[in-house]
Structures are given as C-alpha cells and as structure tokens.
Design a protein around this nucleic acid. Structure first.
Lengths: 193, 193
DNA sequence: AGATAACTTACGAACGTTCGTTAATCAGAG
DNA sequence: CTCTGATTAACGAACGTTCGTAAGTTATCT
C-alpha cells in the first residue's frame, strides 16, 4: 500500500522538523513522487498529519494494553520495571513514539483541539489500567499502603522523564544510568519497608 | 530598548508555533513595525532566535543558581520541595522556561549544534551543583546512603516530568496533584527509614 | 551655538524561493 | 471503457532577505 509509505515518510519529517517545518515536497520525494500526487491519497497536509497521529496513538496504546494484559504474575517490581524497558524498546523500534511525544506536547496550533482529543483518550485508558494494577498490589500488601492514585501519577512521571531523556538522547549509557536512578528511587518510594 | 520588545514578541511566537511556524511578519506586527525593520536590530531570523535562546537560558540558570545560593539551612526536604515550587513559579511568571523546554528538546534542525551547546552548559552546571548538595546531605546522614548521582538524576527526572506537565497543563489542580504524588514517592525513596 | 557629518531606526518595494493546493492530462490495469 | 494513481502546469500566498531611502538622533568641529 502506497499510502503507508507516504505516512511513514511523513512521520519521519514531522518528527524531525515539526508540523510547520515538514514540507510536502520532502515527504513526496522520500517516497519517490511529486508532492501533487499526495493528493490522490490524502485530502491535504492536515489530513495526512491527523492520520499519522491517529496511527501513532493506536500503536502506542495497543503496545501498552498488550503489555499489561500479557502479565501473568502479580510481581509489581518486575512488571513496572518491564514497562519502563518497553518504553525504551518502543522508542528505538519505531519513530512513532517520538512523533507522538512531540505532537502531544507541542501540537500545531490550529490542530490543538484534535490532538488533545487523542491525548486525553490514551491517557485516561492507560491511567485507569495502571491505577487498577496498583490498587490490587496495594490490597495484596505488596506495596506501601496509600491511595493508588499516588504511585500511578508518580510512575507516569518516571515514564515521562524517561521519554524526555530518549528524545534528547545522544548516549545510551546516560539513558540507562538515568533510568536506573529514577527506578531505584521510585521503587524504594513505593515498596514496603 | 526596542530590541527587548522584539525579543519578547519573538519568544511568544517561537514558544507557540516553534521556530519554523513563527514568522517575522507576526513578530514585527506584535511590536508595531514592519518585518524589514527587524533587520536594524538583528542579522536575521537565526540571530534573533539564538539571542532569545541565550537570554532564556541565562535567566533560567540564574534563577536556579540564586535559589541554591540563598539556602541558609541544610534541610533537604524543604530545599528540594522548594525547588520544585520554584520551577512551577518560573513557568507561570515568564514564558521563557516554556520556550527553553520546547527548544532544548525539539530544536530547529539547522541550529541543533548551537542549541546543544547551551543545553549542555546549563545541565552540567545545575547537575554539579545539586549533586554536591546531595553529597553533603548524605554525608550528614540526612538521606539514604548511596552514590549522590542516584538521587540527583532521579530528582532531575521529577523536575522534567513536572515541566512536561506544566507544558500540557490545562488545569492547575491536576498539576498540583501530580507534583504532590511525585514528590511524596521521591522523598520516601531518598529519605532515611 | 550652529553647521555638518555619522549613525540609528524605520519603511516601501521588490527579490527569489518555497509553501499548500487545484486543475487538466495521461498511463496502465481490470 | 472506466477507474485509479501519477504527472505536468499553474495558482495565490507567504516566507526570509536585500536594497535604497527618509527621518530622527547623536557626535564632532568651527
């Protein structure tokens, strides 16, 4: 499918240069066609962008849901640390997560409304899922007793900081060091004494 | 000074629309002049951007250095939590921190080198400063004994996640809740039991 | 003080280029 | 023949930048 090639190229340039900085000529050239030909597949730049955005969001959401549904054991230490590693892996496999991160925090001004809808959707779902996990773990006495919303929000904080580090990353060693440090302190902060 | 008005307007549009999305016409219009007149003050768009960037970095660096040098007491709990509040205050006072955050993580591609130099500079200085603080606190037995680099990196992680939340922020209540949660877990993770 | 020179700031006009988009045309496949 | 997808051509609009110029300010010298 040629549309997928276009979306792949668009993802790349949107990620590097942002919405305004990415030009349809570049994207078209990447897939070996003229920019006017893109209009056979998409209604325009906005349409292309929103489809790429939706795809990126869906794959990210799916990856996270799959990770949590494939957990057999109830071992918060492994499960949570594994989730952080999942984020790192996703970042290095596809460009989609980096694109998603950039656009969810710095969306093109005239599409902020549409972007926000996607952001809110994925956030509510993952947060509800994780908070439920924490609720169980706390009830089972595996974690420090407190309202599950607290470790949930704190963990998303760790995830966010790791993603930011992944964006900036020049060096894998530095990333791993920061991940270990954040995880160590976080785990000590939620585990039972 | 008219140059300052221009830089102020430029900061605003760079923050909202990014480098590529901000146009000199808009910036000029904001200060009540034509875009050609900007060239009496700056050599071009890149020059304007880099000056705004440098100013933003300097004020942020200065704010952080001042905060740490004005600490009289050796009370990590107050000092660290106060630093988080400082970040929140800086974000709501000036636009500069939001601009800085956006550009340090998603710089215009052709200026990445120049931006990186500023980022590395501010990061090295603040990190060295904070790590020294942690070293002292740990030596005084006020914090959990470990290599000071660990709580330093973890704390910067908390700071980053708070800043991301400030960028996204639609709601002050949500921000405060996330800040409290991250702080609670972080503090429990580094304090002595 | 008054005249002159130099510098600063702003403007209109125009430059060449690129942008996203539309329309007409054409090749190839079912 | 029809339909899908790609092309060429062309569009108005906006981009950053340069030029020449005019007005205002400052500095220098007699």
């Amino acid at each position: 499918m040629k549309s997928d090639d276009i979306k792949e190229a668009a993802l790349k340039y949107f990620t590097i240069h942002g919405y305004e900085g990415a030009s349809l000529s570049q994207i078209a050239e990447e897939v070996g066609m003229k920019k006017q030909s893109l209009y056979a597949h998409f209604r325009g730049k906005d349409d292309l962008f929103l489809q790429v955005l939706h795809d990126a969001k869906e794959t990210e959401l799916l990856s996270k849901l799959q990770y949590f549904s494939n957990l057999r054991s109830s071992q918060p230490e492994e499960d949570l640390y594994g989730f952080l590693q999942l984020i790192v892996d996703l970042f290095q496999q596809n460009e989609q997560l980096k694109f998603w991160l950039r656009m969810s925090f710095f969306p093109p001004a005239h599409l902020q409304k549409e972007v926000d809808l996607e952001v809110i959707d994925i956030e509510e779902k993952t947060q509800a899922l994780l908070q439920e996990k924490f609720r169980k773990w706390i009830n089972e006495g595996l974690l420090h007793a407190e309202h599950p919303r607290i470790p949930t929000l704190a963990f998303f904080g760790v995830v966010d900081s790791i993603m930011l580090e992944l964006v900036y990353m020049s060096d894998t060693k530095r990333l791993q060091e920061k991940l270990e440090a954040s995880w160590k302190v976080f785990w000590r902060g939620i585990s039972i004494r």
